[in-house]
Computed example of a mutant assay.
Amino acid sequence: MAYIRKEFMIDNSPENVWNALREVGDVHRRLVPGFVTDTRMEGDTRIVTFANGVVVHELIVDIDEAARRVAYAVVGGSMAPRHHHASMEVLAGSGGRSRFVWTIDVTPDELAGPIDEMAEQGAGVMRETLKATPVPTGR
């Protein structure tokens, strides 16, 4: 099983970053606009369309308000791993900034490269999107 971890600082408060992350059905507007072109919810499953054409179905496993953590698993779509579980967590950093931790477990190992590349791109978009105060809304 491959393990991918992205950890980075965001020039915004943990409260503002969490406010964007917790809106799991609005990531194409609030978290990674342009990188994700559409998001829609079907029950507890999020259908995510990426700019590169990949579509994934993600089961939202947990939205933990106290821990500021979202957990999800890819359960279908055009990229169908045998196993995928990920979490995104917002922690307090120094100077009012946020530390963002994104972990992904995936099999088969051959998917680690493409998923790591997409996660790296997504992390860059998140840093830029979330550094603004307040975090942009889609409403």
Rank of each mutant, 00 (worst) to 15 (best):
M1I: 06
I4C: 03
E7C: 05
A20W: 06
E23R: 13
H28W: 02
V32K: 07
P33E: 03
G34C: 05
T37F: 03
D38T: 00
R40C: 02
R40E: 09
D44A: 05
T45G: 00
T45C: 04
R46Q: 10
R46S: 05
I47H: 10
V48L: 13
G53N: 05
V54L: 14
V54Q: 11
I60N: 02
D64L: 09
E65S: 11
E65L: 08
A67W: 02
A67S: 11
A67N: 14
V70L: 04
V70I: 09
A71Q: 14
V74A: 15
H83D: 13
H84C: 10
A86P: 15
S87W: 11
G93R: 09
G95E: 13
G95Y: 03
S98Y: 05
D105Q: 13
V106E: 03
L111K: 10
L111H: 06
P114T: 09
M118H: 04
Q121D: 07
A123N: 08
G124H: 01
G124W: 01
G124L: 01
R127D: 02
E128M: 08
E128L: 12
E128P: 01
T129L: 04
T129R: 14
P136A: 05
P136I: 03
R139Y: 09
R139W: 11
R139V: 11
